[in-house]
């Protein structure tokens, strides 16, 4: 069953086109990732799907019906912490549960499940303003789960939180999906999409530039290879100099990690090692890895996800 059908969606803000003829179909039970850099049009697309924005043209259907008719089946986790900080976790979730029309035992069990699911049961009587950033993000999710929606849309739910809360949220998404809930997950963190999503749409400048499973997407650039090596003193290396080696298309240098993307047909391993050796950099570990979605995005757009 098609949970979301987006057909040639266009959204203009004055002269700026935020969403430019975007089409997508999301099936029931999927965890669908919308991946793209900031300003790509992910949030605008989400807001159009939820009915918070009106499309300039195009059509959105939820569960085969006009989006407005099926709002109650939708749970939305906004990018902002859309909660009352003077309210306790329980009161915040209850407020939204009541607005969705839940009453009595149904409401109480909805609240319990949502707080349990997000790991906030122990702090249900504490006010939101006492919560850490990660706990607030989890409460933001709990408020969207209270009415047991069939579709959850999460707009960058892990922005600015600690790794522990991030892992909790990612696991929660997986558990939701196991319960049969369809999840639409937008992010610019490539690793999250790779971990969670069955299918992915890469969005840039308001358009879907590629979509499919991770395998399908990486297959789009199967002419690339990715060399990773761990070194002691990466600062001795220059991105520009590595980039001048034949076949190299992208270089990332971290504190101790170096990643060099190259064309598969060019055998440049020797040249790369020679350069590293020339710089008197000690290599601890080396190997080829799978091409990431980051590389896919870079190849398709010429830009990085976090540019």
């Amino acid at each position: 069953m098609k949970v979301i059908e987006i057909d040639n969606l266009v959204k203009k803000f004055g002269d700026h086109t935020a969403v430019n003829g975007l089409s997508l179909t999301i099936e029931q039970g999927e965890v669908f990732g919308l991946l793209g850099p900031n300003g790509a049009g992910k949030s605008t697309t989400i807001n159009l799907v939820c009915g918070l924005l009106h499309a300039t043209s195009g059509d959105v259907k939820l569960f085969g019906k006009p989006a407005d008719a099926e709002k109650s089946k939708l749970g939305f986790v906004p990018q902002n912490i859309a909660l009352y900080d003077n309210f306790t976790a329980y009161e915040n979730v209850k407020f939204f549960g009541e607005l969705y029309g839940l009453r009595g035992k149904e409401l109480e069990s909805g609240i319990d499940e949502a707080l349990e699911f997000t790991g906030l049961s122990d702090v249900r009587r504490k006010k939101a303003k006492t919560f850490s950033g990660g706990m607030l993000r989890r409460l933001n999710i709990a408020a969207a789960l209270v009415h047991n929606p069939q579709l959850i849309i999460m707009d960058e739910p892990t922005v600015g939180i600690d790794p522990q809360s991030r892992n909790h949220i990612l696991k929660s998404v997986q558990r939701l999906n196991e319960k049969g809930v369809t999840v639409v997950y937008t992010t610019h963190y490539m690793e999250e999409v790779e971990t969670l999503c069955n299918r992915i749409a890469i969005i840039d400048q308001g358009k879907v530039i590629a979509s499919g499973t991770k395998k399908e997407l990486t297959a789009l650039i199967d002419d690339k290879k990715s060399l990773h090596f761990t070194v002691d003193n990466a600062f001795e290396l220059s991105k520009e100099e590595l980039g001048q080696i034949e076949g190299v298309i992208n270089v990332e240098i971290g504190d101790n990690e170096v990643q060099v993307e190259s064309l598969k047909e060019v055998d440049n391993l020797h040249a790369i090692m020679e350069y590293v050796s020339h710089k008197q950099v000690k290599v601890r570990d080396i190997g080829f890895r799978d091409v990431t979605l980051e590389t896919v995005f870079l190849t398709l757009t010429g830009r990085k996800l976090r540019d």
């Binding site: 918070l52 709002k71 109650s72 906004p78 902002n80 859309a82 909660l83 607005l99 969705y100």
Partner: peptide, 13 residues
């Protein structure tokens, strides 16, 4: 500012 109103509107109110 917090977009709570948007969230309230999504509940169908």
């Amino acid at each position: 500012r917090t977009k709570v109103k948007d969230r309230i509107m999504l509940t169908g109110l």
